[in-house]
């Protein structure tokens, strides 16, 4: 799968449900952050959970990203300071371009 986001792109995590297993945290869904680093193509956890942990076993590989969120964008009434952030890794399938600069 081709990498569709670049460093600095604003992305929104899909507000999707997971049928069985995912590692995309509920608290990030529907939230917008910025791509700060690339990760390799990895088999998605949605496949790994079924024993499809390699491409040979049917695991789908796709690009992963480190997404940085402003804490105040993640949580209502965040009690820290505006500068605070949270980073986590997200598979490409869970990301959409953020609406304000949709491609």
């Amino acid at each position: 799968m081709n990498r569709t986001f670049g460093i600095g792109d604003r992305v929104t995590v899909k507000n999707a449900t997971s049928m069985f297993h995912t590692r995309t945290q509920a608290y990030t869904r529907g939230k917008t952050g910025v791509v700060v680093e690339f990760r390799p193509d990895w088999v998605i956890p949605e496949d790994e959970a079924w024993g499809r942990d390699t491409p040979e076993r049917g695991g789908r590989e796709e690009p992963f990203y480190v997404v940085r969120f402003k804490q105040k964008d993640l949580w209502p009434n965040y009690t820290g300071f505006d500068v605070d952030t949270l980073e986590t890794e997200v598979a490409q399938r869970w990301l959409d371009p953020a609406k304000e600069n949709a491609k």
Binding site: Q25, P45, Q71, F81, T88
Partner: peptide, 27 residues
């Protein structure tokens, strides 16, 4: 509540320091 939790460990930062939480959810 990262700043509150850090304070429970005795660690305090002002607004000039970005507290950056890393949630190691993947690989």
């Amino acid at each position: 509540w990262p700043r509150e939790v850090l304070a429970e460990f005795g660690l305090h930062f002002g607004p000039d320091v970005e507290v950056r939480v890393h949630d190691s959810n993947q690989k």
